[in-house]
């Protein structure tokens, strides 16, 4: 089911405020897109619309050259995208059950669930947390459990809402590393973040959300290299 998804004329209104009015926006398989913008500019709102969790006032969603009415677009988006909240909600149960949620919800056989969950937890190096109650984890641990919980359902696109906000350096680094590995495995990712420099090394496109519309920002290779050496390298040294 891999394929681009295009959004045209997306409009979201709260009261008499037009929050979003986006001409066009496309997400392509295999790409990593960063959306930045000021607080309250509508990043979360846009990401939830893209994930089929929030109904816009207007939107034309096109997949494989077919335009879908919102009802159909919504279920397509819900099955293709997995949205990760700014502060992920952990179900009041073990880390294992949290990660297993998506598989059980889609009625994957029991033995397979068990195997896949362990495999994913080991992949994320979270297996030591398996029996812990997920609600009692630290912010960084929650974010990584949430990423694992999302990865296991193997979505076409992963939508990450400020995945590294309010974290200490170590957690930020561990989360970054997971995202980077997801990306190198070919996962398509959309990230919203204030921290453009932090993600500079893995993103293919950068959009700035302003006055309800997306503006494409040029990410020159020179700038990218400079940023990566200035920010990521000393950071990695510290993290290890």
């Amino acid at each position: 089911m891999q394929g681009s998804v295009r959004f045209d004329n997306v409009e979201k209104v709260y009261g008499d405020r037009v929050l979003l009015s986006i001409d066009t926006f496309t997400v392509n398989p295999g790409q990593c897109i960063l959306i930045s913008g000021d607080n309250g500019s509508g990043k979360t709102t846009l990401l939830k619309i893209m994930s089929g969790l929030l109904k816009p006032e207007k939107a034309t969603v096109t997949k494989n050259d077919v335009s879908l009415p919102w009802v159909k677009a919504k279920s397509m988006l819900q099955s293709e995208m997995v949205y990760l909240h700014q502060t992920p909600y952990m179900f009041d149960t073990s880390v294992f059950n949290n990660v297993a949620y998506g598989l059980r919800a889609t009625k994957v056989p029991k033995a397979q669930v068990e195997e896949k969950v362990w495999q994913c937890l080991r992949w994320a190096r979270l297996d030591h947390l398996t029996p812990r109650n997920a609600k009692l984890l630290s912010g960084g641990e929650r974010q990584r459990v949430a990423l694992t919980r999302a990865r296991i359902v193997n979505p076409s696109f992963l939508i990450l809402d400020e995945p590294t906000a309010n974290m200490d350096r170590g957690s930020r680094h561990q989360t970054y590393e997971l995202i980077q590995r997801l990306q190198s495995e070919g996962m398509s990712i959309v990230i919203s973040s204030h921290d453009v420099e932090f993600f500079a090394n893995i993103i293919d496109f950068h959009y700035f959300l302003e006055a309800g519309n997306l503006r494409k920002i040029d990410i020159g290779t020179k700038q990218r290299k400079h940023k990566s050496s200035a920010v990521v390298t000393p950071f990695q040294r510290k993290g290890r």
């Binding site: 994930s51 819900q78 909600y89 179900f91 949620y101 919800a105």
Partner: peptide, 26 residues
Amino acid sequence: SDRAIWETAKTLGASSPKAMFTVMYE
């Protein structure tokens, strides 16, 4: 209760009844 419960359940592929039971459980 947190709206994020419903959204998390739905985005992970739960049907609406399943998501409802998850919200009730929480």
